[in-house]
């Protein structure tokens, strides 16, 4: 955001109305319903709460959710960086279409992605049948969860890293080259440090999205308790058994994790902005 002129009388009307409506709508739609989860859980003692959120089945779901999300976000960090680099620096046929398609996971409803990936990676699917002879099963295994979470996290790294690569100063790379650095040395010592905050932000965004994801995972995961059951699914299972307290306790754990991720992302963006400000 551009800095606005220092303290000056603002003649524009509508501040009270627009801010009032913003706060009213925010409370009504977001804050009050969210607080319901915390207030509901506060009726539990700490021991009861801890007991609910650390049963073996729940812990297994955390392990899968975080493990698969971490792997998915890591795959996206590596390939997202390559895709962003290729889209900015090279020209090749079909580039504009690829660039537009990067956002497909944002635009495609998660249920559609879920059934499409399940169909592809099932044993008789296009990709599943190619992997089956090697004994690799993707659909209805933990591998399937990773595939789905990689899909939905794909745009985050590309879209956060892409503008930073565009703003890279070619002169710095030329200077590095003229001082005798190889292309790889230039990349590691000159380019990567500039991209790093954006890359980490993209990674954190992809991770945060993957942890909460539900629609694309439920179809491909198979949802076997202790093995391929993600935490959001467990919340729904508890709800269907009318275990509102259990579902809400898990939701509070998920919310706390979301808030932590949001904090991390904000810190990373602050770091990225500060770095960008210092270098320009």
């Amino acid at each position: 955001m551009t800095p606005r002129p220092a303290k000056r009388h603002n003649v524009l009307p509508g501040f009270g109305l627009s801010l009032g409506y913003t706060l009213f709508y925010l409370c009504l739609i977001v804050l009050i319903p969210l607080s319901a989860a915390f207030i509901r859980t506060s009726s539990l003692t700490w021991e009861q709460f801890w007991g609910i959120v650390t049963t073996p089945r729940v812990v297994a779901s955390y392990q899968l959710t975080f493990g698969a999300s971490l792997i998915g976000a890591t795959i996206n960090a590596v390939f997202g960086l390559i895709v962003a680099w290729v889209l900015v620096r090279y020209s090749f046929p079909g580039k504009r279409i690829l660039d537009a398609l990067v956002d497909l996971p944002f635009a495609l409803p998660t249920a559609v992605a879920g059934i499409a990936l399940t169909g592809l990676y099932a044993q008789n699917g296009w990709i599943g049948s190619l992997l089956a002879p090697y004994g690799i099963k993707v659909a209805f295994t933990q591998l399937g969860v990773i595939v789905a979470l990689t899909f939905i996290g794909l745009p985050f790294v590309v879209r956060t890293v892409q503008p930073v690569i565009e703003d890279l100063e070619r002169e710095l790379e030329e200077a590095a080259a003229s001082l005798g650095a190889s292309r790889w040395q230039t990349f590691v010592n000159v380019i990567l440090p500039v991209i790093l905050p954006a890359l980490l932000t993209g990674f954190a965004l992809a991770l945060a999205r993957a942890i909460g994801e539900y629609g694309s995972v439920v179809f491909i995961a198979g949802n076997i308790p202790m093995k391929t059951e993600i935490t959001p699914l467990l919340i729904i299972t508890k709800l269907e058994q009318y275990d509102f307290v259990g579902a809400t306790a898990l939701a509070v754990v998920m919310l706390v994790i979301s808030f932590c991720m949001l904090l991390v992302v904000n810190l990373l963006q602050w770091w990225a902005n500060r770095r960008a400000g210092r270098e320009s």
Partner: peptide, 26 residues
């Protein structure tokens, strides 16, 4: 703070988003 609060729904799992309305209106 207000900007962060407006962005909040993006970081909440969709399942949790549904659940909180069940807790209010169920």
């Amino acid at each position: 703070v207000l900007i962060t609060l407006i962005d909040l729904p993006f970081s909440v799992s969709p399942v949790v988003a549904g659940l909180i309305y069940v807790l209010v209106f169920g």
